[in-house]
Amino acid sequence: MALLIGLTGGIGSGKTTVARMLQELGGYVIDADLLCRELVQPEEAAWREIVEHFGDGILNPDRTLNRAQLGKIVFHDSGEKRVLESILHPRVFEEEERRFAGIVRNDPGALVFIDAALLIESGNYRKVDKVVVVACDRHTQIENSLKKGFLSREEIESRIDNQMKQEDKLAYADYIIWNNGDLSELEQNVRSIFEELKALNK
């Protein structure tokens, strides 16, 4: 029997690294952020709705969404954030279900992970069999995020403060992967949880 597992964690927690490790172990990963990017390609239905609401000012010269510009708007206005989520979330959920069904058709015993930063906030955790939260201390979050080079320390700290608190996320977790140690320790933790999940779907 296939299992659908939600994988989540705050900015800089190492969620993407964990998703890659799970894939290497034989799990399937559906990346919610990647689905979002596909759904907002120019002239797609979601793209049209977003442009209609937010205006042409959020577009790059090639008509793709300027995610940084859109992020600035929704990051500082919870009402606008809700509008964006109401456009994207139902479509993302639908596409996740479609892809899960496709995977299960080919591999009935699959372990399928939905890699989603907003798994809990969006309510999508209700649709999965298990929830895995990747967690680490604040210092590690900041250092990991700085390495990516996209955001300043101030911006990272502001995002951490505006995201759902880690301890609140942990309350929803069936499994917690702590990522404060080195890479080999993380690999051991991931492998251990993967084996536990595999034992559930026999």
Rank of each mutant, 00 (worst) to 15 (best):
A19P: 04
A19T: 06
A19Q: 11
A19E: 07
A19L: 12
R20L: 08
M21L: 15
M21G: 09
L22H: 14
L22K: 13
Q23N: 15
Q23R: 15
E24V: 02
L25M: 04
L25E: 10
L25T: 03
L25V: 02
G26K: 14
G26F: 15
G26V: 13
G26N: 12
G27N: 09
G27L: 00
G27M: 07
G27F: 10
V29A: 05
V29F: 06
V29L: 05
I30G: 02
I30R: 06
D31G: 02
A32M: 07
A32T: 04
A32C: 13
A32V: 11
A32W: 09
L34N: 12
L34G: 05
L34M: 10
L35F: 01
C36R: 06
C36N: 01
C36S: 13
C36P: 00
R37A: 09
E38R: 11
E38M: 09
E38H: 10
L39G: 09
V40C: 01
Q41F: 13
Q41A: 14
P42K: 11
E43T: 14
E43D: 15
E43L: 14
E44W: 02
E44S: 15
A46T: 00
A46R: 00
A46N: 00
W47F: 12
R48W: 01
R48K: 14
E49H: 08
I50N: 11
I50V: 14
I50K: 10
I50P: 13
E52Q: 13
E52P: 05
H53A: 10
H53L: 12
H53K: 15
F54M: 00
F54K: 03
F54N: 04
G55R: 08
G55C: 10
G55P: 11
D56W: 02
D56C: 00
D56K: 12
G57S: 10
G57Y: 00
G57V: 07
I58W: 00
L59G: 00
L59P: 01
P61W: 01
P61D: 05
P61C: 04
P61M: 03
P61Y: 05
P61E: 10
D62Y: 09
D62F: 07
R63F: 08
R63Y: 11
T64R: 03
T64H: 01
T64M: 02
T64D: 01
L65K: 04
L65Y: 01
L65R: 06
L65F: 03
N66K: 03
N66P: 06
N66M: 02
R67V: 09
R67C: 05
R67G: 01
A68M: 12
L70T: 10
L70G: 10
G71Y: 04
G71H: 08
G71Q: 08
K72A: 13
K72R: 15
K72Y: 14
I73K: 04
I73H: 06
I73Q: 05
I73E: 05
